[in-house]
């Protein structure tokens, strides 16, 4: 349900982020003034964080008494795609980029409603193979191949 105070949630999240990161900056090492050349290393981040806090307060104030805009609903497709991309992060190291890309190229079209399974299968093999050939053999970029390392190098 849309809130009655526009931008309250992002504003509060920004303020919380500022508070946490400002606390982190207090833990930064300090160096003698002669080495700091004008500014300690914590000065700039603190300045920026204070600026963000001030702007967040302005944003919250501006949103006062304004209804939150209706946002597009997020269906299970969004959450499933997000989960797929997050799991890809863990798979890249084990399965390698080519195989993980093949899996995402197979899964995303199906998640997004594609029902022509043969096309999806051909596409999910052809795309990573083309990328592998282009980058490994033409551009000489070594992609991590994980379990396929013995065969693809």
């Amino acid at each position: 349900m849309p809130s009655r105070w526009k931008d309250l949630l992002p504003g509060l999240l920004l303020l919380a982020m500022v508070a946490v990161l400002f606390a982190v900056t207090l833990q930064f090492d300090t160096v003698p003034a002669a080495f700091a050349q004008g500014m300690q290393s914590s000065a700039m981040p603190q300045l920026i964080l204070l600026l963000i806090a001030a702007l967040a307060l302005v944003m919250i104030y501006q949103g006062h008494a304004q209804g939150e805009e209706e946002k597009p609903t997020m269906s299970w497709r969004f959450w499933a795609t997000s989960a797929l991309l997050l799991s890809a992060v863990f798979l890249f190291e084990r399965l390698g980029i080519t195989l993980t890309t093949a899996l995402t190229c197979f899964a995303i079209p199906l998640l997004w409603g594609e029902r022509r399974i043969t096309r999806v299968a051909i596409y999910s093999i052809a795309t990573p193979v083309c990328i592998y050939l282009l980058f490994t053999h033409v551009l000489q970029l070594r992609l991590p191949q994980g379990v396929l390392s013995p065969w693809l190098s």
């Binding site: 991309l85 890809a88 995402t104 980058f135 070594r142």
Partner: peptide, 29 residues
Amino acid sequence: TFLWPTVFALCVVGAYGVNQSLVDVTIML
């Protein structure tokens, strides 16, 4: 349904390619 998975594959290789680091792929995501 076919365009965006291809874009994602190019994103992964592009993010990895600069420093050849999977940490950069994680940062991208």
